[in-house]
Every structure is written in structure tokens, then in C-alpha cells.
Design a protein around this nucleic acid. Structure first.
Lengths: 210, 210
DNA sequence: GCATTCGTGGCAGTGACTGTCACCATGTTG
DNA sequence: CAACATGGTGACAGTCACTGCCACGAATGC
């Protein structure tokens, strides 16, 4: 987009260095047991400066871990605009999982999940992040649906939200409770679960498989 | 059950008095803007004593607001043990909504939702509470299913979890985004949404309506 | 009457933040 | 080159949720 200033580049580099150090500490001793002061000292800065780079302690974790939900959002956006919401969503979930299961990605995300699972605090914030993703995806799908159908329909938005909620829930459950399965197995589980859902109204995208 | 000690009765009374005062303050000036010290002072106790009655600040809120999820759990438990998971869940959701929509209940829960919606912090904890409910309900349904079918099936537990996740998600979405509808309308929305979900496997409870 | 136990308040401390200020290294301008 | 504005930084004090510790007083048990 716009030319990044020297300052912006430096700042971004600093951010990454801090989060590298932080995540290393999180893995080593857990999120809760790591203080911001320790992160700052390990990164060679003061605690005050840490908070100039990250608004909260958990942001330093999610700055790296949030890639997954963003990928899903991107894949939804990449779908053809005239596709029905539920069809687009299913396809986006499929292709997102396929992408995330690639090589080095899965190592990284397994590590993050471990850190996440050991901190109730972090987990709580993860839920609100999922909730934000739900809103982002639902809004995108709703706008597209509204352009083609009836933008004044009062039920559509909420029905779309529940569909997205189900999809995110399914992915989250499988990722959390089927860590030991192969990526292909996980994808199959998610796919089967989503296939069993047929939107309450055909205009939202009834199953194409009859 | 067991005879409540005099101490237990006094303690419970104190807890209720504190949470009454606290929730009044939350409504008046918002959750985040209310400090524990203010609650304690208003209740005529010290801050230290407050934390002997409630482990955290949000607990004082949820001690009153958690009734809804507990009602759902109860209704699931009340279902016949041999009923398929998804059938039991749908029925439990229906009857729970019916019960919660009764008279004075809905005023109270609207107030709570208002407080909740204005605090990101509180909302995050609400999600973890929903997650706990998800686990409780899923465990109950799984145990029943396992007794009748195959307890060693590796997929069952996770498939049940995704079903419960969808159900809770649907209820949550409707309650959050259809506040302005009539209770009957909300129940219809939830019911329709859940009817559109057919478990990936018939043993988990395919729709009875063909 | 005395000891034990329990509920309470006071107080100090921790950890995540925020506001303020002074310092210093920039880069800019005359 | 000197005066100046700009922005990043650390030090410090303060807030708020929460915890551990101790001492006091009141109810309880023998």
C-alpha cells in the first residue's frame, strides 16, 4: 500500500523481537508464570517500553497466534461473491484447514495450542478473538447475501451468524480435542460435521449434495 | 441434603447481600468502572473480606447470572437416559427457553445482558463459562450414549461436543442479537436453526421429522 | 475460666497496566 | 553550525485486582 517509513520498519522489527523472546519464555515456563518485567528484561527494554509496543500482555502472544483465524477470514473473502453463505463457508473452511496443515505451520500452531491450553486467562481472550472473527466473517457473508437477496430481512443476519458460529465451533472442537489425529483425519471430521448442517432456509445455501 | 450449619446460612446471606450491592453498582456505573473497594464499602465490609466471599470480581456477577446455563444443564439431565444425544439436546433447549422466558426472569436476564455487553472483560469470562457448560453437557450426553452404544468410539465424544457447541452458539447468538424480538420469536429462531442440523451419524440422533 | 477456632481488618506485596516527566538521539531549518 | 522540534525511552508514582500474613475479637468447646 503506502511506503513504510524507516520508523515503521524499525518498530515492526522491535515488535517481532519482543514477541519472539516472549513466546520463548511462555513455552519455557508458561504464560501465567511469565511476567511482563521478565519479557522486557529479556528483550533488553523497560517494562514501560513493552507496553508501548503491545497494549496488553496477551497481545504479544496473539500477535503471532492470530494468523489462523485471519487465514479463514481471507479464504471466505476469496470466495465468489454470488455464492450462498453456507456453501462459501464450507469451502473456505476446507481450504483453510488444508493450508494450515502444511509443513512448518502445524508445528508452530501445536506449540501455540499448548501454551494456550495451560492458561485460563489466555483461553478466555482466545474466545473473544473467535467471537471477533465470527463477526467479521458473518458481516462479509451477510453483505454479499444482502446484495443478491433481501437486505431488509431481519432474520438473515442472525441465521448467518449461527451458521458461522457452528462452523467455528466445529473447527475449534476438532483442533482442541483431536490433536492426536492426522491432519487428514481432522479435516474429515470437520467436513463431515459441517455437511450435516443444512441451513434453515434454502437461500442461505442448502447442501448441494441433495 | 445435609443440615445447613448456622454459619453456612449466615455466609450465604452475606454473599447475597454483597452481590445485590455489587450488581446495583454494576448497573449504575458499569462493571469496569466499579472497583472492588467500592463494592466492599457499600456492603459495609473490607476489601479483604470481599475476597473471602468471592474469589474474583467477576464471580460476584456470575453468581447471579449463571442460572441460565445451569437451567439448560438441568434440563439435559432430566431427559430420558436412552434418548439420542441430539434429540435430547434439542428438547432440552426448547424447554429451557420456555422456562427462562417466564415473567420476572426475562427482566433480570435483560439487565444482566446489558451489564455483560458493556464489559469486554466480563464477556471473555462469559465465554469460558459457556465453554464449561459445553463440557458439562457433552460429558452427560456422551456417558449416556456410551452406555447404549460403543464407549470406545473415538469420534463420538468430539462429534457430540460439536453438536452441543452448535446448540449453545445458536442460543447465544439469538439471545445476543434478537433482544428486541418477542420470546416466542426467539424460540422459533433457535428451534428452526437447530432443526436444520442433522448429526453426521444416525446413532447420535438424526432428525425424527425425516 | 481458659483454649481453640473462626471471621475479620490492616498492611505489605505482586503483577498488569497508565500518566507524567525528563532525557536523549534523531532529523529539520535558518 | 547552532537552535529547534520530534519521537522514542526509562524512571517513578499511582491504580486496581488479588494474595499472604498477622493480630484482634467474638463465638464455641471443654
Amino acid at each position: 500500500m503506502s511506503a513504510p517509513t524507516l520508523r515503521e520498519v524499525t518498530r515492526q522489527a522491535a515488535r517481532e523481537r519482543i514477541s519472539d523472546v516472549a513466546i520463548e519464555l511462555f513455552i519455557e515456563r508458561g504464560y501465567d508464570a511469565t511476567t511482563v518485567e521478565e519479557i522486557a528484561t529479556a528483550a533488553g527494554i523497560s517494562e514501560r517500553t513493552f507496553f508501548r509496543y503491545f497494549p496488553t500482555k496477551d497481545e504479544v502472544f496473539f500477535s503471532r497466534a492470530a494468523a489462523d483465524t485471519q487465514t479463514l477470514i481471507d479464504h471466505v473473502t476469496a470466495r465468489p461473491a454470488d455464492e450462498a453463505p453456507w456453501v462459501a463457508l464450507q469451502a473456505a473452511v476446507d481450504s483453510t484447514l488444508l493450508e494450515l496443515d502444511r509443513a512448518e505451520n502445524s508445528d508452530r500452531s501445536r506449540t501455540y495450542r499448548t501454551v494456550l491450553a495451560h492458561s485460563a486467562d489466555l483461553l478466555a481472550h482466545q474466545f473473544t478473538r473467535l467471537s471477533d472473527a465470527l463477526t467479521a466473517i458473518s458481516d462479509t457473508l451477510w453483505e454479499r447475501w444482502a446484495a443478491a437477496e433481501d437486505p431488509t430481512d431481519p432474520d438473515a443476519k442472525i441465521l448467518i451468524r449461527t451458521l458461522v458460529s457452528s462452523a467455528l465451533g466445529a473447527v475449534n472442537e476438532v483442533m482442541s480435542f483431536a490433536e492426536d489425529r492426522t491432519p487428514a483425519e481432522r479435516r474429515r471430521l470437520v467436513h463431515n460435521t459441517l455437511s450435516a448442517i443444512r441451513p434453515a432456509r434454502p437461500d442461505l445455501g442448502g447442501s448441494t449434495a441433495g
